[in-house]
Amino acid sequence: MKIVRWIGIGWVAWTIGWIEVNAQPVAAPSPEVSSERQITFRVFAPKADTARLTSSDLPGLGFAGVGMTKNERGVWEVKIGPVPAGAYRYAFNVDGTIVLDSNNPNVSPTNDSVFSLVEVPGSELFDRREGTPQGAVARVDYYSQTLKRFRRMHVYTPPDYDTSRERTYPVLYLLHGATDCDASWSTVGRAGVILDNLIASGRAEPMIVVMPHGHTGPFRFGASPEENAFERQMEEFSQEFTREIIPLIETRYRVIADRAHRALAGLSMGGYQTLLIGIDHLGEFGYLGIFSSGIFGIAGGFGADAPSDQWEKARKAVLDDANLKKGLKLVWFAIGKEDFLLKTSRATVTMLQRHGFEVISKETEGGHTWLNWRDNLAEFAPLLFKP
């Protein structure tokens, strides 16, 4: 009997200890979004000395993020906002370690990491709406002969794609930025929701949107000029895109495979790739969209101490070819006035105009953020493929 009693007491003590160490508090929901678009974040870390909310998307946080306050139950909390409607990546810095929000199953991958994702309603274009037909975003895996390994992309198909089996569609190839991946446009970028709402309202034509992975290897800022890693990756992606991705899409999906029904657009690094691929293969695209980008180095920066015209000189014959311009329906630039690539964008627009391109260029408020890029897509997509 004593043995049984001691075993029972030991089991109870172990159980209490496990609960004290491992149990989450009952009331620690995170994130909570109020009707005023304020967001409350919480993380359970009773033994931590510090905790901070970090985000590259949430306005006003800055690089270091914002400090959180711990209550008597060991729950750290901070409230921010109001913030504009949209989607935002975030994480917690707990005693110097970056952790995700374990109370939130919504995440958004980047090119080498993953972040928690919070959606703030209140937008006509970014919110899912009851009664609005919804398309589908599918993960597509394929083997790249160019890179000799399996790769991934995401593809949006419009709401009627599966029911109108004889219909063919135009296609928009939509490229991500340097710190992102093929899932970014459909998570934090809300591309599928934006297209659903635009198509339902009649503002955009039903289209397929292809979101490939634009990195061909590990990406790091500040690579030495001798390595030339960035340009090598850009060339590798350009080859994969034209030799494999476009043929795969035009074989697997019901797309209209001609220039008038093929558009290419991207943000930041993806905008540079849009110019690289779009100009080098100008006869294959009817629409080009460049968000927060341009020809890197054309106005200095990105390893260039002074403006560089090498890109322009290497493509002078194409840039001056009037026949290639005839089928080009739209060249569209957009950038925020606080964007660090503003001079790059302006210099690129001037260069293209110097070679006879008709360019639409607009400058908005804001900087190099998804707050602008979602708006850019919502404005660019209705300009495509009109009868």
Rank of each mutant, 00 (worst) to 15 (best):
V120D: 01
S123Y: 05
R128D: 04
G122M: 02
F115W: 13
I199P: 03
G192P: 03
E124H: 01
G135H: 03
I208P: 01
R167I: 09
L174S: 06
R167W: 10
R152I: 13
V188I: 15
F230A: 05
E205G: 03
E231S: 13
G192A: 11
E130W: 02
Y169P: 02
L174G: 03
I208F: 06
M153R: 07
R139G: 11
T146N: 11
V140I: 15
S116T: 10
V209C: 13
A223K: 07
G135K: 01
M207H: 02
V140F: 12
P133G: 07
R139A: 13
T163Y: 09
T157D: 08
F219L: 09
S144K: 10
T163G: 06
R139F: 09
H215A: 09
R167A: 15
T146C: 09
P121I: 00
D196Q: 02
L125P: 00
G135D: 04
P212G: 05
E205M: 11
S224H: 13
E227I: 09
P158F: 08
T187A: 04
S164H: 13
P206W: 12
R203K: 15
R128K: 14
D160Y: 06
P158Y: 09
M207V: 08
F221M: 14
V114P: 05
Y142M: 04
F230P: 01
E119K: 07
F115Y: 14
H213C: 08
A229D: 14
R190V: 12
E227V: 11
S144D: 09
V193E: 01
E130L: 08
S123P: 04
A200D: 15
L147C: 09
V188G: 07
F150H: 09
G189F: 00
E130N: 10
A191L: 13
D141M: 10
G122P: 13
G135V: 00
V171I: 15
V118A: 05
P121K: 01
P158R: 07
P121F: 01
T187V: 08
P206F: 13
G192H: 04
A136N: 14
T216S: 09
G135W: 01
Q145T: 13
V120T: 04
N228G: 15
R151C: 01
V193K: 01
Y143T: 07
D162N: 14
W185A: 07
T157L: 11
Y169C: 08
R203N: 11
L172Q: 08
I199R: 00
Y173M: 02
N228H: 10
G222Q: 06
P212M: 10
K148I: 00
S224F: 11
